[in-house]
């Protein structure tokens, strides 16, 4: 999409998040680099514990203390937003960055009607009178596909089904025309047939409004259908970044490649699923060098000694030594040590 744009809308550089504990400092994010361009849908994928949700929370300043940003920069719309005060961030959140969380029940207040929650949010971020705000609320509900929107303003969240609630949450996130929406597992709590509806709504609205989306999910199927570009996260870093078609079909990083291969698909039936040995290292136990080295079929000594930075891979960028000129010089591979997987 918006290729011409000079500076990305959201630019995260070397973001580090840590958690101070009694037993020392636990690094959760170890230098995340990613960007979202104007009007683009960036999918952020990874397995649980890879740091994708924490990245989203850090960007919008919603990290639960004592977790905190240890380093790196977050730029949004040309201005640096990490380290802003709570007040300043609150003005950006909602108005210019909308947020959608996994569970619509926890992001809606059960004691207020949908109409009140919508008009309140609209009037907080936009200079509108009560009547105009209500009119806007009805328009929004209509846009996200809630039937008989005007008559539903007086309803409470529990009167809606899960899919309808998530539509309301999307309406809330969109109400002030944000430039960017951060959606953290927006369809994970929903059944597949409802999931398809919600993805459809999100995709259509963002296209119509030119809103960029950072879509965080573990579901590669959702990413494949929705995203323009994908950032794959592993052990607190982005290890591959490329167009969705390339990452899904022709991933450069051995981890993304293994991940895509291990997903059963409807189209084909295979005898055995290709599997990646072992499991992702726990927070605080990430090995030196490449975090994927202990599980990697291509591992060499270089991988264990030094952490690779992002470099041009086959078609995407990947943090893998294979794409470095030093790969050829590195000593012939010794196989990965045996890992009890799980």
């Amino acid at each position: 999409m918006a290729d011409g744009a000079a500076r990305p809308l959201l630019d995260v550089r070397g973001l580090k998040v840590g958690l101070p504990t009694r037993r020392g400092h636990l690094p959760i994010l170890n230098g995340v680099d990613l960007h979202v361009k104007e009007g683009e849908v960036l999918g952020v994928v990874g397995e649980s514990g890879a740091g994708k949700s924490i990245t989203g929370l850090a960007v919008i300043g919603l990290l639960e203390p004592p977790a905190r940003i240890d380093g790196g920069e977050v730029w949004f719309d040309g201005a640096r937003i990490d380290g802003l005060s709570g007040d300043a961030l609150r003005r950006i959140r909602g108005a210019r960055i909308g947020v959608i969380f996994q569970d619509p029940l926890t992001s809606l207040n059960p004691l207020y009607t949908i109409g009140r929650q919508l008009t309140e949010t609209i009037r907080t971020h936009m200079d509108l009178g009560a009547d105009a705000a209500e009119k806007r609320a009805v328009e929004l509900l209509d846009e996200v596909g809630i039937p008989a929107a005007a008559s539903r303003l007086g309803a409470y969240p529990h009167e809606f089904s899960g899919g309808m609630r998530q539509r309301v949450v999307i309406a809330l996130a969109l109400c002030a025309h944000p430039r960017l929406i951060i959606a953290d597992e927006p369809t994970t709590a929903l059944d597949v047939s409802i999931q398809a509806q919600i993805i459809g709504v999100l995709k259509r609205l963002c296209r119509e409004h030119g809103t960029a989306v950072m879509l965080i999910t573990h579901d590669m199927g959702v990413i494949a259908e929705t995203a323009d570009r994908v950032a794959v996260m592993y052990a607190g870093r982005v290890i591959e970044d490329g167009t969705v078609a390339e990452v899904v079909r022709n991933a450069s990083h051995p981890y993304s490649h293994g991940l895509m291969g291990s997903i059963p698909t409807i189209g084909e039936r295979v005898g055995r699923l290709p599997q990646i040995r072992g499991a992702m290292p726990r927070v605080g136990a990430v090995p030196e060098g490449c975090a994927f080295a202990p599980r990697c079929p291509e591992v060499r000594d270089l991988c264990r000694a030094e952490r690779p930075v992002m470099m041009g891979g086959k078609t995407t960028s990947a943090a893998c030594w294979q794409y470095s000129p030093r790969w050829a010089d590195s000593a012939g591979a010794a196989g990965a040590e045996a890992v009890a997987d799980g």
Partner: peptide
């Protein structure tokens, strides 16, 4: 028809 699938990109 509704399952998100890797084959459905774009």
């Amino acid at each position: 028809e509704t399952i998100p699938d890797l084959g459905m990109t774009g």
